[in-house]
Design a protein around this nucleic acid. Sequence first.
DNA 1: CCTCTAACTTTGTCGGACAAAGGGACAGAA
DNA 2: TTCTGTCCCTTTGTCCGACAAAGTTAGAGG
Lengths: 255, 255
Amino acid sequence: MPIAPLFRPIDVAPAYQKVADAIEREIVNGRIKPGDPIGTEHDLVRQFGVNRSTIREGIRVLEEGGLIRRDSSRRLHACLPRYSKLASRLSRALVLHEVTFRELYEASMTLEVASIEGAVERATEANVAELDDNLVRSEAVVGDPAALAECDAEFHVLVAKASQNRVLQLAREPAAQLFYPTTEMTVTGVAEGGPRLVAAHRHLIDAIRRRDREAGVLWTRRHLQDWRRGFEKIASLDRSVEHMYMEHAQATRRR
Amino acid sequence: MPIAPLFRPIDVAPAYQKVADAIEREIVNGRIKPGDPIGTEHDLVRQFGVNRSTIREGIRVLEEGGLIRRDSSRRLHACLPRYSKLASRLSRALVLHEVTFRELYEASMTLEVASIEGAVERATEANVAELDDNLVRSEAVVGDPAALAECDAEFHVLVAKASQNRVLQLAREPAAQLFYPTTEMTVTGVAEGGPRLVAAHRHLIDAIRRRDREAGVLWTRRHLQDWRRGFEKIASLDRSVEHMYMEHAQATRRR
DNA sequence: CCTCTAACTTTGTCGGACAAAGGGACAGAA
DNA sequence: TTCTGTCCCTTTGTCCGACAAAGTTAGAGG
């Protein structure tokens, strides 16, 4: 005989979790705005009526979630979660799930094409100026694969920004972060890799400026295919993103 | 006179952070595999030589990051971060950044089309069976907008799963989570909204089964455009995703 | 071999404690 | 005046010890 569903499971969350949830609720529903101070730990002890250790555990949860931060003086205040921090959590998850470079490549093809389409349609003068600046810096380091890879990563972040679509910006970031460490290798492995990369960027900026969607999509595809060709000289696309890459990502995250 | 940038700020991480980093490193580089036990708090106290409170703060960080969990008996073990949990963090961030439904719609159009393309190409028998099952359940609740919205959300998760691309799966999830609460309203607002939704799903499954990419893309577009039409009867696409929605997301997250 | 109970362990929470670092006020030196 | 050093107060990071509740293990008894 099935049991009679008389009672619902009651909510028995530990105190630190309730503290975190309560503060989260206030931030998410807007009663605490980004930038607002949260109060000292002692304040929270008084308000919630729990021990400071408990409060601190709750704070750690929110801090890791990116909802609150400590400023230079270590005081707590609410803040907008940074995309790059969230994205690195996702990147980490993708590594642990052992996604393949093929998955990364396919998803990025979609996302970067969508970014450029948005950028072509809605980029502002300021966006283009940022891209130009990036291009100049890229040209200066065209012989230095490591520096060039960094410029490339930034370039695509700027394109996504120019799309004015923050959902897209956020969606493309995790895959992009995993790409970045390999770009250096692919540029190194291909003759004329550096100049090709910079040339593609030049064409992309040009397409954005002329609002030429076709050209933008075309050069984004070529640019990614270049990466792929370079990568396949080193390894199979079906290899999973390895743990090694995370060490790089981890080192750069803390900045 | 501007100060001379002679020194960089040195990084002096607190102990709980070092504890979290150390454990994270072991998990991410694979020395601790998902499922492996981490040891008791007391073990960690001995290993790291710090107080239990410090260990506990570090544990909270990792727990929130989804890298470790406590099983039924509350013992710690490493685990693979769950996509849905990570995605709800992202959804939360998108709400706080006050993204508009237009951004959501545009990004989803890209991501869902990419999903269906992947599904058409690579869906397995098992994937199709899951979709069929979902369709049956959807037909049963076609008159109940709330239940139907839930089925719709699940349907698109299954399509993304069928694409066999986990990067895509993860990338689409945050936007999809924000869509979900509105689907109920859009179905309610449009005459024949429910049947149209189910019909679209039927065509999508059919397209996947026949590996008909054109049809898949077409019906995905129509399906999303239906949502849009329904939404625009209620509000402007340029309205930002509101805080209210988060309460719904928050309530469902804990399951 | 199974069940039930009695230790034992582990977690969640508490109270108090202290050193280090930040902030503010204030006096004295350049 | 502007800078510097000092004193004091607050806040954070860490530690210690403690205890109840819940889970685990082992042994007694059927």
